[in-house]
Design a protein around this nucleic acid. Structure first.
Lengths: 115, 115
DNA sequence: ACCCACCTGCAACCAAAGGTTGCATATCGA
DNA sequence: TCGATATGCAACCTTTGGTTGCAGGTGGGT
């Protein structure tokens, strides 16, 4: 079961730089490619490309203001992304617990045969 | 605050093919590059490279058995990955809630001034 | 023992993604 | 108007995900 996740949304937040960008936008409020690049280890152009990716999947939106483009997080879309993260996490977690339970059952069974 | 996430671990599960591979290994139990590739839209060699990536970050381990290499999920490491997913999710979720709370406060304030 | 089928690893090659530099354009402010 | 600043676009490089082709082990019949 492939968990039916939106691959575009996931891989958008899969990049460490983009994840940090979202962190920054949430912490400091809306920002521009230039302002973000000053707090990141990459150039403004790289940040600009990442913003384009985030914009394409709807995680951020641009608000043109004079000579600068101020980006802000789309809260609804980010909430959707968070839901998917926890969804996959929950799926894996459930499987891990099931595996552990089966392992314990086998363990008990082996003990019974041994006595 | 950059959430101090292990970027290698995160980007390992960031790839959709690798995520599906983990799903398969959890659902069907240990498997080989060949067996996994039969249920995936990529070639055996591609799967083999992905397994190498997952192995490098400790999410899977190989058990050489005769002519085949059977891979199984490292449950502890996967649990760690799941924890990071939910950690980032929780961080963003908290910020979203805080933003919403502030927005509502401003809303209330504006209403008071208006009356 | 032999041969064939099967699983694997390695190398060459390709395309897309992330990153950089350089340059041209547009806007704000003194 | 002129300089400083913010942006966009293009060329180029490197890494990564993907492919094909080929050679090397291992297992199982005959």
């Amino acid at each position: 079961m492939s968990t039916t996740v939106d691959d575009d949304l996931w891989s958008a937040v899969g990049d460490p730089v983009r994840r940090t960008m979202i962190d920054l936008l949430l912490a400091d409020g809306p920002g521009t490619a230039t302002s973000l690049s000053q707090e990141l280890p990459v150039t403004r152009q790289a940040v600009s490309k990442h913003l384009a990716v985030l914009d394409r999947v709807g995680l951020v939106h641009a608000a043109p203001a004079g000579r600068e483009r101020r980006y802000h997080v789309d809260e609804a879309q980010l909430a959707r992304a968070v839901a998917q993260l926890s969804s996959v996490g929950a799926t894996w977690d459930a499987r891990l617990r099931r595996i552990k339970r089966i392992a314990e059952a086998i363990e008990r069974n082996r003990d019974n045969e041994g006595e």
